[in-house]
Design a protein around this nucleic acid. Structure first.
Lengths: 111, 111
DNA sequence: ATTTATGTATAAGAAATTTATGTATTTTTG
DNA sequence: CAAAAATACATAAATTTCTTATACATAAAT
């Protein structure tokens, strides 16, 4: 993650949401997709990404399919059933978080 | 901070925004205000708050005024000039962050 | 009289991330 | 065509941030 500290703590949710949407993605693809979505604002570093993916896999939220494309290794990740349920929870937490932060930033708009 | 990890990294911004709004606040007051704003969702723990306040002070973004109220100590914090400038930056970062996260959560609404 | 609320503080440990490397192949560019 | 950049994964050390636990002290409430 580059720049703002605010993204700390949101990496897992970002990964899971993207996988929910795309079905399956590999690590490098995730970094590129996030960079694209945020117009270069958020750059996920490999040192953050890969440990996060491995942990989510270890927790049973992701499963992996290894493929070889152009002689290069790709590890496609997708949500398990348990991971899909967890994603729903994390997304509602994220929405609550965003609501709370918006009230903090703009208390006068809290109606 | 209780519950969601998402709040990681947002404590400093929260503190600075509240101080910008209120002029000056003391630590305990900040914890209560945040609890109130978020309807109990976000509880800032002392172990997170006080080190954060001290660090912001050390960085020159906050200054402190000690007062005794009802025989109890209170440390009122307020933004320095440098802190006010920094707050503007951090708030625009926060708004950008919120926008980005909303696009991630709801890519179809990004118009 | 005891618990809860108010008020500040620190220290140990956990968790997430940054920074720095490392390896290897393919594509682009000068 | 040689060098650089992009693609693709990975880990380890250090740093940052936060949780949990503890500490001390006074005021208010039960």
């Amino acid at each position: 993650m580059k720049n703002s500290q605010l993204y700390k703590g949101s990496l897992n949710t970002i990964i899971m949401k993207l996988l929910e949407e795309k079905g399956r993605m590999y690590g490098y693809e995730i970094t590129q997709k996030v960079k694209e979505i945020t117009k270069g604002e958020l750059k996920i570093t490999e040192g953050a990404l890969y440990p996060a993916l491995h942990k989510l896999e270890a927790e049973g939220f992701l499963e992996v399919e290894v493929e070889k494309v152009d002689n290069r290794l790709r590890k496609y990740y997708k949500l398990t059933e348990s991971g899909e349920k967890e994603t729903v929870n994390r997304l509602s937490e994220l929405e609550e978080f965003i609501r709370n932060m918006q009230v903090l930033v703009n208390p006068k708009l809290s109606y």
